[in-house]
Structure formats: C-alpha cells, structure tokens
C-alpha cells in the first residue's frame, strides 16, 4: 500500500480506535511514503477524525502496526508523538483562546534558538502573510480562516516530519479555503508528507497524490487521487455528481 519503494513515513495496519467501549474506527490500514500527500475521504461519522486522534495518541488504539519514522507509536502520549515529529492540525483548530498570535507561534517554536526562530517565522509569514499583521491579536477574536492559518503555522514551526490535517476547509469561505489549500500545495512541493482528512473530497483529492475511502470505520478503497476524481461511484458518493 505504500506510495513508493522508500521506507514509509507512517505505516498503519489494522488500526482500531475506541472511546471507552464504543468503537469509532474498526480497521484502517494505510501508509504514507516520503514526500507523499495522502487523503482520506468519507462521509460524516465515518471515523476520519477518530482515526487521526488515534494516530496522535488522543484516543485509545489497538493496532497490528502503527509505526512513524521507524518507531512504534501506539500507546504513546500525544505530547510524545508530537515531539517525535507529527504535526497535527485538529478539527476546530484547537488553539489557545486567550493567547495572542505571537504567543501561539512562540509555543510552536519554543525549542528553537532565537536565530532559527526568526527564520522559521519568516517562512510561515511567507505562507500566511496575514499572521504577521495579527501578531498582537488574541486568537479568539480572529476569523475562522485566520485561526486555521495560525493552527497550521504554529505546527509548521515545529518542523514536523509528517502533517496530519483534519478538515482544514471546514467552515471557511471559498476564498479562505483557496488560501489554506494554496499553502498546503506549497508544503507539498517542499516534500512535507501529509495525511489530509476532508469532507470536501474534491479539494482533498486535488491536493493529494493518493487517497483512501473510509466507510463506517474501515478503509474500503485505495487509489490514485486522479483515478478517484474520474471514478463514477466516487463522484456520485463524495463529489456530488
């Protein structure tokens, strides 16, 4: 299932995620190769968010194999997984509502030297120029689009080896979605591997190399994004045509 012959960045085999006794994900197997962008599409309630939360250590998991960068991560706490190099942009953004934009970015870059931090700040400001104008603004007063940009930016400052994105276009105006997906395209060009979960399947498939379909907690299909875009059954189920 890997996208290439190189060692996968993330390899998952028979992942199950549950909240107490309630199973949310039953059987997910997927892999992401170096530099690869992979989408997971599925209807509401299919288990997409739970799958990401499970990978990130925010929900209890059982898996035959859950390996990131050659290391088993099942059962590790989320902060440890983040430290290993997975950047997670959660649904709903999960910002710190009382902190300013600058403080959020400083939290993302707290392990960097002053010089490294300045360079990284410039890099994220190139992707999201609006954040530079909002440094002193408290995050809860920002628009949804600005919050999404900040959520991505603060994770990028940690120089992740893999980016997990949960519904980055949710609730955003089309023009803001374009800006967010423009930034994701730039990151993809730089070779940052990403796993993108989206209800907006059209955007997700256009942004990624490969895709999986998640239905009722299980992966049911896998293929190249371009094939999915032309597939009548996928178009009927997820692309509205």
């Amino acid at each position: 299932m890997t996208g290439g012959t190189a060692e996968p960045v993330l390899e998952i085999s028979r992942l199950a995620v549950s909240y107490g006794s309630k199973p949310a994900v039953r059987d997910v197997s997927l892999s992401i190769g170096p530099g690869e962008a992979v989408a997971v599409i599925g209807s509401n309630g299919a288990g997409k968010t739970s799958m990401l939360r499970g990978i990130m250590g925010l929900a209890s998991v059982a898996a035959e194999r859950l390996v990131f960068a050659g290391r088993a991560i099942a059962g590790l706490p989320a902060q440890r997984i983040a430290t290993l190099g997975i950047g997670y942009v959660a649904e709903g953004r999960e910002l710190f509502p009382g902190l300013t934009v600058e403080e959020e970015l400083l939290i993302g870059s707290r392990k960097l030297s002053r010089a490294e931090r300045a360079d990284r700040f410039e890099e994220v400001f190139e992707l999201f120029p609006r954040l530079k104008e909002r440094l002193g603004q408290v995050t809860r007063t920002m628009s949804g689009g600005e919050q999404q940009m900040l959520a991505i930016a603060r994770v990028l400052l940690r120089a992740p080896k893999l980016l997990l994105l949960d519904e980055p276009s949710l609730g955003l105006a089309p023009i803001i979605q374009d800006a967010v997906y423009g930034a994701l395209a730039a990151l993809r060009k730089r070779g940052l591997p990403m796993l993108l979960v989206e209800q907006n399947a059209f955007r997700a498939l256009n942004a990624c190399d490969r895709a999986y379909v998640l239905e009722l907690g299980s992966i049911t299909r896998e293929g190249a994004s371009c094939e999915f875009l032309d597939d009548p059954s996928i178009r009927a189920a997820y692309l509205g045509s």
């Binding site: 706490p77 983040a82 999960e94």
Partner: peptide, 17 residues
C-alpha cells in the same frame, strides 16, 4: 506561556508537545 496554554486547552497543549 506553557502554563497558560495548559490552562486554556489541555489537548491543544499536548499536540504542541
């Protein structure tokens, strides 16, 4: 900042390491 972050959103703090 980390203390305030934990106080405001514990899950977000975790995903920021």
């Amino acid at each position: 900042r980390q203390v305030r972050a934990v106080a405001q959103n514990r899950n977000a703090a975790r995903i920021m390491g």
